[in-house]
Every structure is written in structure tokens, then in C-alpha cells.
């Protein structure tokens, strides 16, 4: 059973799954529910705290899941771990670069997000193909 913190993401994932089945009414209801159960705020809203959280996933959680997934022969888990590890690395790189350069890092650049896997790309145009999940450029959105 999903815990309270994860509930909203579980439901918004189901909304996307409904949308892909062209069940648009159901997708909307799942999204509404995801919004309603989305709750409590973070305790330490600093980039350093987030950097530490993300680093822990990279160092501990992903390697452990990689081992467990390989032992079970679960390729779905291995796929999610592979994408997640790479996306997490990109998140850390962005945080590090922003921490050292500040707003100058973003000057004249756009922040693109792959809607399929979460990969973040800083540049003038989105990549032609996502380096993590191979989704094409139209799957990227520009984060304003």
C-alpha cells in the first residue's frame, strides 16, 4: 500500500496511463485525486538538503535496487533503475553547476525536461533524442 507521501505520484502516474488508453475522463479524475491527496511541505527547503537526498539515492538506493533487480531477473526494475540513475546524475550536475555559478548559469539558456524519463537539459534547444530514454525532441518541455 502506497504511503501518504508517494500517493500523489502513484495517482498522477495512473492518470497518464489512462490518458494513453484515451480514457480522458478517468485520467482527469485521477489527476484531481492526485492534487487532493498532495500534502505536507518539506522541512528543510534548501538546495543543499535536496542535493544530499538525491546523492543518497545515487549512492545507496539505486545500487541496491540494481542488485535486487538483477537477482530477480526483473528487467522492468532494471530499466527504471537505469533511467533513474542517469536522471539523478543529471539532477546532481545541475544543482552543482547552479551552486557554483548562480543565475549566470541560466543566462540565455532554456531548461528542458524530458516528460518521459525526467532528464533535465540546459541549452538552446532540446536534444534531438533524449540521451537517457531515447524519446524524441517533442517529448521535451521548456521549464519556465
Amino acid at each position: 500500500m502506497a504511503q501518504a507521501t508517494a500517493l500523489s505520484a502513484v495517482l498522477s502516474n495512473l492518470s497518464k496511463a489512462a490518458e494513453k488508453q484515451e480514457l480522458f475522463g478517468i485520467a482527469e479524475r485521477f489527476n484531481e485525486l492526485a492534487g487532493l491527496v498532495d500534502g505536507n511541505q518539506a522541512r528543510d527547503p534548501s538546495l543543499e538538503a535536496l542535493r544530499a537526498e538525491v546523492a543518497r539515492d545515487g549512492e545507496r538506493d539505486y545500487p541496491a535496487l540494481q542488485t535486487a533487480g538483477a537477482e530477480a531477473g526483473d528487467r522492468g526494475v532494471l530499466r527504471a533503475v537505469k533511467w533513474g540513475e542517469k536522471v539523478t546524475t543529471a539532477q546532481r550536475a545541475l544543482m552543482d553547476r547552479y551552486a557554483s555559478k548562480g543565475d549566470a548559469l541560466l543566462e540565455g539558456k532554456q531548461l528542458f525536461l524530458c516528460e518521459a524519463c525526467g532528464f533535465i537539459f540546459l541549452g538552446d534547444d532540446p536534444p534531438e533524442i533524449c540521451p537517457v530514454c531515447k524519446a524524441p525532441a517533442p517529448r521535451f518541455s521548456n521549464v519556465k
Binding site: 502516474n13 495512473l14 527504471a80 533513474g84 525526467g118 532528464f119
Partner: peptide
Amino acid sequence: SARILAEDCARE
């Protein structure tokens, strides 16, 4: 980005 990763974990 974190939301998309969370959703992928939910799926798996």
C-alpha cells in the same frame, strides 16, 4: 523531474 521519477517507480 522528481515527480516523473516517482511516477516511474509507482509504475514498477
